[in-house]
Computed example of a mutant assay.
Amino acid sequence: MNPTLFLSILALLSGFGLRYWINRRKFYRRSPLGAEGFSSYEKSVFISFLERMGKWIAYALIIFGLLSAWVYSREKKDKEKQELKTEKPI
C-alpha cells in the first residue's frame, strides 16, 4: 500500500472520528431542556476550549486527508501516463 494513500485514509478516519466523539460528548451533556450541564464555570470554560481546539484539529486532519488522497490520485495518473508512453513503439 502506498504511504500517501495510507496517510490520507488514516487522517480522514481520525478527523471524522474526533468530530464524532466531540459531538457525541456534547450531545449527551445536554439536559432535557437543551442546556449543557457543567459542575463548575471553570470546567465549562476549559472543556469548551478543548472541544473547540479539537474540532479545529479534526478539520485540519480532514483537509490533510483529502489533499493526500488528491496527491495520490495525481501520482497514480502520472504513473499511468508514463507507462503508456514507454509501451508505445516509436
Score class of each variant (00 low, 15 high):
Leu50Gly: 08
Phe16Thr: 01
Tyr59Asp: 15
Trp21Val: 05
Thr4Gln: 00
Tyr20Glu: 06
Arg24Pro: 13
Gly15Glu: 00
Tyr28Glu: 09
Glu87Arg: 15
Val45Met: 05
Thr4Gly: 00
Ser44Phe: 13
Thr86Arg: 11
Ser14Thr: 10
Glu75His: 14
Phe27Tyr: 03
Ile62Phe: 10
Lys79Phe: 13
Met1Gln: 12
Phe6His: 04
Leu67Lys: 13
Lys85Ser: 13
Leu18Glu: 05
Leu84Asn: 08
Lys26Arg: 13
Lys81Val: 09
Tyr20Leu: 08
Phe38Lys: 02
Leu66Val: 06
Ser39Thr: 11
Tyr28Arg: 05
Ile9Glu: 03
Ser48His: 12
Pro3Cys: 04
Ser40Lys: 03
Pro32Met: 04
Ala69His: 07
Ser68Val: 05
Ile63Pro: 14
Leu61Glu: 01
Ala35Asn: 12
Arg25Thr: 10
Trp70Thr: 11
Lys79Arg: 12
Lys55His: 12
Phe64Gly: 07
Tyr72His: 14
Tyr20Gly: 03
Glu87Thr: 09
Phe64Asp: 04
Lys81His: 10
Ser14Val: 03
Gly34Glu: 02
Lys43Pro: 15
Ile62Val: 12
Phe49Gln: 10
Arg19Tyr: 11
Leu67Pro: 08
Trp21His: 04
Ser48Lys: 09
Arg74Ile: 15
Asn23Leu: 02
Gly54Tyr: 02
Ser68Lys: 04
Leu7Tyr: 05
Glu36Phe: 10
Pro89Lys: 05
Ile9Trp: 01
Glu87Asp: 15
Met53Gln: 09
Thr4Cys: 00
Ile22Val: 02
Arg74Ser: 13
Lys88Thr: 10
Leu12Met: 04
Pro3Thr: 01
Lys88Arg: 09
Ser73Val: 15
Leu10Ile: 00
Pro3Trp: 01
Leu67Glu: 09
Leu33Glu: 09
Pro32Asp: 06
Ile62Glu: 03
Pro3Val: 01
Arg29Lys: 04
Arg30Ile: 08
Thr86Tyr: 09
Pro89Phe: 06
Lys79Cys: 14
Ser39Ile: 08
Phe38Thr: 03
Arg52Phe: 12
Ser31Glu: 05
Ile9Ala: 03
Met1Pro: 07
Ser14Trp: 01
Leu66Asp: 06
Lys77Trp: 11
Leu33Phe: 07
Tyr41His: 15
Ser14Lys: 01
Ile90Asn: 15
Arg24Cys: 15
Gly17Asn: 00
Gly65Glu: 00
Val71Tyr: 02
Ala58Gln: 02
Trp21Tyr: 10
Tyr41Thr: 09
Asn2Leu: 06
Gln82Glu: 09
Arg25Ser: 12
Tyr20Cys: 06
Thr4Ala: 00
